[in-house]
Design a protein around this nucleic acid. Sequence first.
DNA 1: TTTCATATGTCAACCGGTTGACATATATTT
DNA 2: AAATATATGTCAACCGGTTGACATATGAAA
Lengths: 322, 322
Amino acid sequence: MKPKISDVAKVAGVSPTTVSRVLNNRGYIGEETRKKVHEAMKQLNYFPNDVARSLFIKKTFLIGVIFPTTTNPFYGQLIFHIENIAASLGYKVLLCNSQGQEDKERSYLRMLQRNQVDGIIAGAHNRGVKEYDIPNLPVVGVDRYLSENIPVVSSDNYDGGRQATQLLINKGCRNIIHINGPSYLETPANLRRKAYEDVMKDNQLNPVTYETEGDNQAVIKQLFDEIPLVDGIFASDDLIASAVIREAKLRGRNIPADFKVIGYDGTETTRLLLPELSTIQQPIREIAEKTIEILIKEINEEGDDSQMETILPVRLIESETT
Amino acid sequence: MKPKISDVAKVAGVSPTTVSRVLNNRGYIGEETRKKVHEAMKQLNYFPNDVARSLFIKKTFLIGVIFPTTTNPFYGQLIFHIENIAASLGYKVLLCNSQGQEDKERSYLRMLQRNQVDGIIAGAHNRGVKEYDIPNLPVVGVDRYLSENIPVVSSDNYDGGRQATQLLINKGCRNIIHINGPSYLETPANLRRKAYEDVMKDNQLNPVTYETEGDNQAVIKQLFDEIPLVDGIFASDDLIASAVIREAKLRGRNIPADFKVIGYDGTETTRLLLPELSTIQQPIREIAEKTIEILIKEINEEGDDSQMETILPVRLIESETT
DNA sequence: TTTCATATGTCAACCGGTTGACATATATTT
DNA sequence: AAATATATGTCAACCGGTTGACATATGAAA
């Protein structure tokens, strides 16, 4: 049977109130008493029950984290940083992989509310999910506009899209296509497309965007089929970019002489597995830091005036595909 | 103020005990009453407090999951599957990225005990960490021998090592080097090295193993410097394999004509970003399924006789680097 | 000597929910 | 008519820990 405070008190020869005083460093405590209590806890392998404690203090130090999947290099790295920073501040992360499914997202939101989490960080599917506006529960979005009242942290998607497109133009591309996710997602990443379109028009070039959702391969093949003279592709995601590289090679295109590719994200994993890919690198650790900072402020009710949108600078990494 | 059972009772015009009966579908309940209670819960946006409930039922449905990092493609994918399966069974995942640091690992173990998790899945650093043997707390290791009393799930590392080495030999390699992690880690992955050594000796070839820890790049450069005639490398990890490919190309080696590489893991991400890499693919989803199955059995005290070691078959994926 | 500080104990209420025992009333079945 | 089932309410103890109020005793400072 798991030891509780009364068992520690018995072994230490003090009262349960005194054990609680030692645990919380509250009230007067003699050094000898403190020592005896710690020894008793060690002897019994006693751990305070945070469940009971949370019930009383009405705080769980839990943060719900909802993203599509840890399998994706960007999310995997982002979630790593979020958890790491949260842990360093004494918070615990409840992981939720929504896989872009609205019903799973809702299910997770209900679960997080039942579990009395102190806050939520979400960067999942959002179309149709209105449940993020929860009274008295701080939520911060990453790369997602979840609600008018919820702060958002993202990279400078517009600048990233601008730099990517400009690079391709500067390198001589004229038939430049953009590949992005579905535009119905309310995400700052749509600014990548906006920037691409603006820069193309500024250069008297015709902007064309392909949207993917799920099967990148099919969309990429269709793109090459429909626009065989494409000479540059700005993919809004490194995984899409890598599929583009493969398809281009299959069709005998010479990268970068005859055909150039640039992606977006620049994660650790991508840099390791596909270092030749030019990309717009997101400041993932900074995004995580800022997200946690804003969330903790809201949890502590210190920042109702948090800036609603935080945009962090990206970095162009030019490699061998441009 | 967050609504509780007594508030729901008031709005529904019933007693708190009746609300609890409805929540738990226990005892006699009239349909009209059930309807009124559900409407009241909806009107108040009431969510049962699982913290309070857990205190009473002495079960949290929390599973602690400790791995080095979600950034790594293998761990990212494994954690995704673990969370997905756990969630489908009504369990919640507390994520812990230990980054291979013993003190963080111990800190997480303490946190998980304080949070009364129902079980732990661990695949982190283990040297020197003896705290996994926790009385009455089910733990399952993935690719780690954590204790004599803790079940382990892994892929068939020996067969994987055997197939990888045999493939290189069958393809004509004679100067085959193996790169693995530090051998002091008590992990089934050491069997990859054992298999490599056995197969090399069986073919009258000289086995040589390089160990990495942290800086793969330096070790790989050293390897090429010290053994310039190396014609095949079996890397026990796809990230290491990709670094090998890069270094080989930098040194003008022709892959696979002049130099062959095979890795291990075969994750989704690696298959997308480096599809040309030959690899031994681990059954990651099956590992997750088996791990959860064993853990849930131990949590429910149904399987004290769980098999202590579960070995799942790997699959050779031959691509362009061999 | 008086006042204040230190140290520890007792007691009980609370955090939100669960649940068993028992009560009362009504309806159905034997 | 009697027994059983259905439906809901009251009450209180419990889950483990927190904490305030108050008590008692001892030691130190004014």
